[in-house]
Design a protein around this nucleic acid. Structure first.
Lengths: 214, 214
DNA sequence: TGTACATCAGTGAACGCGCGTTCACTGATGTAC
DNA sequence: TGTACATCAGTGAACGCGCGTTCACTGATGTAC
């Protein structure tokens, strides 16, 4: 009696087409927007037939789910674990956040663009798909920490702790997503990540420090 | 000999279909994104045949141009003239900018969403179409004014005057575009325009004012 | 005023095309004996 | 080891559909005389 045949073929040395397709899909989503990306344009980027996308992912909906689950979520969890490290005081928290955010957007240059277009926008493809999977725990915890600091007299009393979280994200995400625009307008090719971090922290910690003219 | 017939028909009392189509196009662009908006979906919103869009605008490209020229540009010029008023000092400049920005985004709720998706994004439909028509004079003038204030010792020396302009836009534009998201996360239905202005000015003028715990 | 006609705003049906998806098929790779 | 065959990764052609665009046409509105 023959041993039952094990399903699947063990080893190949061909390039992993599935990963190539996943990357092509992410590239297309960032460059064209998710709604405007066609399966044929994704296939064209990968140099394959659109039928191969059906072979690996089934349909467009499941391709989007795969990009979220295998490309986007790992990056977001990277940020989450970075912020979960307990810190001494609010100053350390602030510096940790700003450095982590600009670092994340530098390591994954597609993230800011994708986020701005697909999560912020009214009918963005990711807002409905991603919000249920993202625990709002991090922004809520940040806002509560700021509120506690404010009650303890350690934070500017005219700030709204919730809006301060919005301001933190706005300052980092917007500066990263709009970088091609403002680099073009100002010709600011000299501004690197360290300069962004320094400027943003100076603004957050001390503000404009406006003084009257003499 | 008869007087030559004057072309065109003088008066009608039917609703202006062209303006209705322009509004339907703006609605569709904001809700679905420009690239993903079809002429049929625009026509459906207006309750007419897509052939009518061809009748008034020719093709999709010229429809987009019409929305830019007749809806977007007037709003942007509104902001430009508001900022062109000479102000006494940097504090007045700052307050003027923040109030004008939040006021603009409140009067035209579609502006922040459209801007974030179509101008900021890499392949956004408006970036190529709009940047050549927008004089970068305003951000450049703001940056120069901040640089002068810094040289005069009236502005936090650790700030980058150019990035400060980016920060101003980020704080106002991002908070407005992301309002549906953060209102949902924080349940912050109580935050109105006045609260946004107050928080943002407190942050910009004085920063977080962090102090050590006792 | 009546009549003939030009022009108006807008429609309905159709065009070629690219879309997402399906499916019978193919040659290479592996397994059973 | 050789041979028969199952399974693999992937293709090519086709499907029905909605797209942008075109165009002959329509009834209402206006004008000339």
């Amino acid at each position: 009696m023959p041993s039952p045949r094990r399903p699947g073929r063990p080893e190949r040395d061909a390039p992993d087409q599935r990963l190539a397709l996943l990357q092509a899909a992410l590239d297309a989503f960032v460059a064209e927007g998710i709604a405007a990306s066609t399966l044929r344009s994704v296939a064209r980027r990968a140099g394959v037939t659109p039928a191969l996308l059906h072979y690996y992912f089934g349909d467009k909906e499941r391709l989007i789910e795969a990009v979220i689950g295998e490309r986007l979520m790992p990056v977001l969890q990277e940020l989450g674990t970075g912020l979960a490290v307990p810190v001494q005081d609010e100053r350390a928290l602030l510096r940790g956040f700003v450095q982590a955010a600009f670092g994340l957007f530098e390591r994954h240059p597609w993230l800011a663009t994708l986020w701005v277009r697909e999560v912020l926008s009214e009918g963005g493809a990711l807002r409905e798909r991603l919000m249920p999977r993202l625990a709002p725990a991090i922004p809520l915890a940040l806002a509560q920490r700021f509120a506690a600091a404010q009650r303890g007299g350690r934070l500017n009393p005219d700030l709204d702790p919730r809006l301060l979280v919005v301001s933190l994200i706005g300052l980092t995400l917007f500066a990263s997503a709009a970088a091609p625009v403002w680099r073009g307008v100002f010709g600011a090719t000299d501004v690197d990540r360290a300069a962004l971090v320094e400027h943003t922290l100076a603004l957050l910690e001390r503000g404009l420090e406006l003084r009257h003219a003499d």
